[in-house]
Simulated scan of single mutants.
Amino acid sequence: MRAAVPVPARPVPAAPSGQRRLAAGTVLVLAGLLAACAASLAVGARPVGFGTLVEALTAFDPANGDHAVVQARIPRTAAGLLTGAALGLAGAAMQGVARNPLADPGILGVNAGAALAVVAGIHVLGITQLSGYIWLAFLGAAAAAAAVYCVASLGREGATPVKLALAGAALTAGLGSVMNAVLVGSRDTLEAFRFWQVGSISGRGWEAIGQVLPFLLAGMLVTACTGRILNGLSLGDDTARGLGQQVALSRAVCALGIVVLCGAATALAGPIAFVGLVIPHIVRAFTGPDYCRILPLSALLAPVLLLAADVAGRVVALPGEVQAGIMTAAGGAPVFIWLVRSRKAAGL
């Protein structure tokens, strides 16, 4: 009997390597960023064609109305880029520090502190200008985050992820109660505050951007350099200590960058939700758990979401606008629910 000749198995297509996936994801992020910037400059109540857009940027004519529209949208686009990059970078770092996939600026009481400071400035000092809101919001956000970290640091174990989350939730609830008490008793304060509270990048000129730009750049520099620190913390406190890392000091450095970024971004654009929460999960899909890659790509992808939300808000309710903070909440919540249910995100 002749022996059966084995039939060679069909080759199984090789899975794309991590490097190829990372390269493809980076190219897509950069392409999306360019497209979002172009849409932010061209789309609105008065749309502008691509050719006119290029002319307005390369050969500006003050007498041309379309050119003037493009130039007027540049500060708004710049505010979206800076705010989005800050929120994405801070969100990724915050999830790494807290080792909590649901971490966002609210977990450190940043939004609550900024909001209460703005309410106090309106009610007590009579401040109604954006330039005043910026400094009030920044100081309030920084003070609230510092208070959370100090409370969480009490005890032998220091600022553990669970204690940070609990302290942040407790402070957010307390500050929110005080803020609501003030707003209920003052209609004028409520009217002035509600326009800042929804979160928006419209009406932010170069003056407002210039006031927070030094803080944004400093926060980005500090946070972008914490990739290896966050990789160590993601292994757990005991493992990080065994590798020679000073856990308390590492968390303090990361928290400093997060506070500066969140405070400056919240001061500039108001409390915008879901950007810092959703973006790191999307980035992990093609970078893996390495924070040296997650941080810079989160800073590049987050402005895409924020600018896209701002552009969508300009056209869904013409001739009016829907603020970017409302659009990010409407679009970000379903995406995040899908990410959680799919269980495909890499571990923290």
Results as ranks from 00 to 15, higher is better:
A224M: 09
A267I: 07
T160P: 02
G227Y: 04
G244P: 02
G199A: 14
A147N: 10
L230I: 03
L221G: 01
A173V: 12
A264S: 13
R251Q: 02
D188M: 14
G185T: 13
G263E: 05
A144E: 08
D188G: 15
L268I: 04
A208C: 05
G158S: 13
L190H: 13
A208N: 11
V247S: 04
V222N: 07
G210E: 06
T239G: 01
P271M: 01
A173H: 05
A146P: 06
S234R: 04
L154G: 09
L154S: 04
A273Y: 10
Q246D: 09
V259M: 15
Q246Y: 08
I229E: 07
A192Y: 14
E157L: 13
T172D: 11
E207F: 11
L243H: 10
N231L: 06
L256R: 03
T223E: 00
G205M: 11
A269R: 02
I201G: 06
A192R: 15
G174F: 14
M220H: 10
G244V: 07
G257C: 00
G199D: 13
G236P: 07
F193R: 12
G263L: 04
L261W: 01
S200M: 14
G263K: 01
S186T: 13
D237F: 00
I272T: 07
L261D: 02
G168A: 11
P214M: 05
L243A: 10
Q246L: 01
A255M: 14
P214K: 05
L221N: 02
L233G: 05
G203V: 13
V222K: 09
A248K: 01
A173P: 05
S186V: 10
P271E: 03
L175H: 01
Q197A: 15
F193N: 06
Y149K: 09
A147S: 15
V162P: 11
T172P: 04
T160I: 05
A252C: 02
E191A: 12
